[in-house]
Amino acid sequence: MVRLYLFAEGQTEQTFADILIQPQLALYDVFMHNPILIAHAKKKGQVHRGGGRNYLPMKNDIMRFLKQEKAPDVFFTTMIDLYAIHADFPGLAESESLRQDPIQRVEFLEKRFAEDIGDARLIPYLQLHEYEAYLFSDPTCFKYLDAGRTKEIEALRVIASQYQTPELINDGQQTAPSKRIIAQFPDYGKAKSIFGPLLAEQIGLHVIRNKCSHFDKWLSRLESLNEKGVSS
């Protein structure tokens, strides 16, 4: 069995990983510790966690764990949004030339992230473009919030049908996945960390993986850690 630490950007990702990813990886003898909210600042010696716009506190947080856990069978990964990514993130300026190909762009940023950390046990993952893209894998999940909102659910379904994958729903300030959901279901924005994981559970991990190839590739790599280690 190998062990895995997951650094989550927010409580939504933290709960999603705990409910859906942790038991899935256990099937492959990959033990994931309770997901950790990643640091966004350190003030007066105290680490502040969750979200944030600064890369350096995130990097320092990961580096601390890497130094504490030096065993070769301990791995680390992240769940950080590409949407509104930290301005000082490695390679961000260079990646602008790849904006027309979001998948290539996110893979480039993950590579630069890994290079900047400099430890092969880190498996970076950036969400395309944010967590809420997963919920467009099956918009009927929003019946869980209100089964009577058929027009709103249909509006989300129409949006999803316009993209080859929900992960390509763009990162505009009003057109990012979460913004589109809140436009139809304002209550979602008031309790994202609660509703987000519950809706994903309604959809099912297998459906999300089938619709979201970048997410599936990352999860498949984590599942293979026992067999292939960091070379997967």
Rank of each mutant, 00 (worst) to 15 (best):
R180Y: 09
E154D: 14
D171G: 08
Y188Q: 06
L27C: 12
K179I: 00
K190L: 07
E201G: 09
L126T: 05
G204F: 08
L126R: 02
I103V: 14
Y83T: 09
Y125S: 11
T15Q: 05
K211W: 03
N170E: 14
G50S: 11
E110C: 13
I62S: 03
F7L: 09
F215L: 09
I208M: 13
I182C: 04
T12W: 10
L56C: 00
T77V: 06
G148M: 07
I80G: 05
D187V: 08
I169H: 08
L37D: 08
A133V: 09
E13S: 08
R3C: 02
G148A: 10
G229R: 00
L126N: 06
N226E: 12
I85H: 03
Q184Y: 02
D146C: 06
R112Y: 04
D18E: 14
I182V: 15
D119E: 12
D116N: 14
Y125F: 15
F195K: 01
E96T: 12
M32E: 04
D116F: 04
G52L: 08
F215A: 02
Q164A: 11
E96L: 01
L205Y: 05
R49W: 09
N170V: 04
E9P: 10
K143C: 10
S178M: 07
M1P: 13
I182K: 03
P72M: 01
R157A: 14
G91D: 08
G52Y: 07
E96Y: 04
K211D: 05
N34W: 00
Y131H: 10
D119I: 04
T150L: 11
N210Q: 15
G172H: 10
E167Y: 03
L168A: 12
S224C: 13
H206P: 08
Q22S: 13
T15I: 11
P23N: 06
F195R: 01
H33V: 07
A183Q: 14
R105M: 13
F185W: 04
I36G: 05
R180C: 10
A147G: 13
D88Q: 04
F108V: 06
G189Q: 07
D18T: 12
G148W: 05
E110W: 02
T77N: 02
L82T: 07
K111E: 15
M58N: 01
F76S: 02
R209Q: 15
E94G: 01
Q174K: 13
G118E: 11
R209N: 15
